[in-house]
Amino acid sequence: MDVRDEAALVAAVRHGDETAFARLYAAYQGPIYRYALHTCGAAAADDVVQETFLVLLRGERFDPRRGTLAGYLFGIARHHILKRISAAQRELPMADDAVEALAGDEEVLDGVSRAEAVLAVREAIQSLPLVYREILTLCELDELDYGTAAAVVGCPIGTVRSRLHRAKVLLRLKLAEVRVKADAAYRTRSRSA
């Protein structure tokens, strides 16, 4: 779907065309739901999707000259996500040197089954500071290009790249912690057995 098609569909939706709505909803509700799910949790994800599409129907008009529809919708979703996240939860990003010091083993999940890895990575993503959690979700899980992600978050593309790099470093650290704890628990169980 190119930008002009999307703009025409949005215009039709705002005139009450249910078929056009079905096309746009099918294309974007999943990615927006997953973005909300990974950044603010399952309880709020449905509400974020609904509020995002209500803005599309009745709110500020989408202007294709100002960016893609994906950027527009994710931007609205982000606004609603941030409203649900308290200031205390918006942890500050880490300093560059601290992050680089943590950079380590790429094979952090070596030998872990797929199901366990999925669970561990999801939990680790949830524990990341918001700035990293959202950029990781947008770029890695929803596969937005850096330009669109930058438009959604409202920062330069270079910042997206650096945040994504730091997010991955922190994610590896979190996963390593999980593994250390699991190993320790196993040793305790083995000794007592």
Partner: peptide, 16 residues
């Protein structure tokens, strides 16, 4: 349970 995932990028792909 299927393939194991070694690298972070493989794990992220699995989550995706």
């Amino acid at each position: 349970e299927g393939d194991s995932v070694g690298s972070l990028s493989e794990a992220l792909k699995a989550v995706r």
